[in-house]
Computed example of a mutant assay.
Amino acid sequence: MLAPRRLPSLNGIRAFEAAARTGSFVAAAAELNVTPAAISRLVRLLELRLGIALFARHANRLVPTAAGLAYQAGLTRILDDAARLTGQVVAMAGAKVVTVGVGPTFAVRWLIPRLLDLQRQEPEIEVRVVTGGQTVPFSDGWSCGIRLGDGNWPGLEATPLFPADLLPVCAPAMAARIGDIPALARETLIRVAHAPDDWSRWLAAMGAAGIRAGGPVFDYYGQALQAALDGIGVAMGVRPYIDDDLAAGRLVAPFPRSVSKDMRWYLVHHAGREAEPGFAAFRRWLIAACKFRANGLDR
């Protein structure tokens, strides 16, 4: 038989955590919709229960003790987890809002063009696309994220979607004059700031490690690909970013060989999301869409 938990008053815990986090009884009272006197009383009772001072009280300010700082840090994490878990449980009641965190290029070049298919298959799902998924930490406010990496994100479940392959691309007119690697070296090789090794990886695989890319640098793949579309130079494309442009003939790959980036695209989310109807439907659709692409049937 498990021993009963020995916990102090949860009201006292909430009052202390809010006061320590906000720095005052007044701010904590406003957050918890009670009076400052009530916050002060609850914190005092908690200190008596624990047998230790959590605050050093001064005339015009509230300073947590060392014990108070350690207690607040742990409590804030626990209460944040409880709030997130509560949101997940409420979402299980049937809400079908899915917030997807993705990088801006993935959103524009792969996800958004396929949302119409999702709407046709799952008309009750409301998808909210939030960009920044590749450059900011995973947000607890997101249902899921689509990220490029090695699949190791502590605290998150990761489902592999498809590999990231490197392939140079350019406008059709430019591709017509690039017949070999020396001809490629005479063109402007467009770079992406956060992926400085893409060109060297592909060139090394082609036996041309001595060539150095020295063209303009852009923050995102989407910007680099737009520059290629405009005829500025050759961009290093990453699948699936380039698939639609290649299929439509807007971009051309002068060389047929692609090289693995040694990363994959993953769907990442907190454990337990699978029980939410909206997320479960989005996940099924996404995995099917990725398999569709892998079989060469994607548009």
Score class of each variant (00 low, 15 high):
Ser139Glu: 15
Ala235Tyr: 04
Lys291Phe: 10
Leu62Trp: 08
Phe292Gly: 05
Gly233Val: 00
Leu189His: 01
Leu246Phe: 07
Arg21Pro: 05
Lys261Val: 04
Ala275His: 09
Arg177Asp: 10
Leu115Phe: 08
Arg14Pro: 01
Ala53Met: 10
Phe282Arg: 02
Val234Asp: 14
Pro168Gly: 11
Ala173Cys: 06
Arg84Asn: 07
Pro216Arg: 00
Arg77Ile: 11
Ser9Gly: 12
Trp265Leu: 15
Cys170Asn: 07
Asn33Cys: 06
Thr135Phe: 04
Asp197Phe: 14
Gly133Asn: 00
Ile52Val: 15
Val238Ala: 12
Thr105Gln: 00
Leu225Ile: 08
Ala56Gln: 12
Ser24His: 05
Thr159Asn: 09
Ala66Pro: 05
Ser143Phe: 01
Tyr221Asn: 09
Ala83His: 06
Leu45Cys: 07
Ala176Gln: 11
Phe279Gly: 00
Ala67Gln: 14
Lys96Asn: 10
Leu251Met: 13
Trp153Glu: 07
Ala176Cys: 03
Pro182Met: 13
Ala281Thr: 07
Trp153Lys: 02
Arg273Pro: 03
Leu267Glu: 08
Asp198Cys: 10
Gly155Ile: 02
Arg5Pro: 06
Gln134Cys: 03
Ala83Asp: 13
Leu246His: 07
Leu69Phe: 05
Arg41Ser: 14
Lys261Asn: 09
Leu161Gly: 04
Thr135Met: 06
Asp150Asn: 10
Val268Gln: 05
Gln88Tyr: 00
Ala91Ile: 01
Ala173Ser: 08
Ala247Asn: 15
Arg114Val: 05
Ala66Ser: 10
Tyr266Val: 02
Leu54His: 03
Thr65Tyr: 10
Thr65Ala: 11
Pro8Arg: 00
Ala271Thr: 09
Ala253Met: 09
Val238Tyr: 01
Leu286His: 02
Leu167Phe: 11
Ala19Gln: 03
Lys291Thr: 08
Cys144Thr: 02
Ala204Asp: 10
Val259Pro: 15
Leu2His: 09
Pro254Asp: 12
Pro4Val: 04
Ile112Pro: 04
Leu286Gln: 03
Asp80Val: 12
Gly210His: 14
Thr159Ala: 12
Met236Glu: 06
Gly207Cys: 12
Ala280Phe: 08
Arg177Tyr: 07
Val252His: 12
Ile190Phe: 10
Gly296Glu: 12
Leu166Ser: 05
Ala205Met: 12
Ala28Lys: 00
Trp110Glu: 02
Ala53Asp: 14
Gly94Val: 07
Pro154Met: 12
Asp262Phe: 10
Glu276Gln: 15
Gly249Trp: 14
Gly132Pro: 02
Arg14Ala: 15
Pro196Tyr: 03
Ala28His: 00
Ala235Lys: 02
Asp165Cys: 06
Glu122Cys: 14
